[in-house]
């Protein structure tokens, strides 16, 4: 547990979260959400939760992003806010 590494990762996670909800293009928002999930996975690996980290990397960042992209491709890509 290194405090500087932890702080930098938390900062990246915050930036990704703010970018994911403020981007107007839905496909970009979904890809940024995938990056957010991978940073979260690094954060958990750093805390010692390796099982949670690889479950997050495979299930949430993999299957979740695929489901989001499928839904966006079936509907509209632009959003108003």
């Amino acid at each position: 547990m290194i405090a500087a590494f932890d702080l930098v990762l938390l900062l990246f996670v915050l930036i990704c979260a703010i970018a994911a909800i403020s981007v107007k293009d839905l496909l970009s928002a979904v890809i940024i959400l995938g990056a957010y999930s991978f940073f979260m996975c690094l954060l958990w690996a750093e805390m010692g939760a390796v099982d949670v980290a690889f479950t997050e990397a495979s299930v949430s960042a993999g299957i979740g992003t695929v489901l989001f992209i499928a839904a966006v491709s079936k509907t509209k890509r632009r959003s108003k806010d």
Binding site: M1, I21, A29, L33, G64, A71, S79
Partner: peptide, 30 residues
Amino acid sequence: GKKNLVKKIIGINIFQTAIILFFVSTAAKR
């Protein structure tokens, strides 16, 4: 606060991940 439905689902995802992060962080030991 957001009007778009996919944005709302992204918000749900961020909310749940934050709570899971809090729960995992209670397990950490120096």
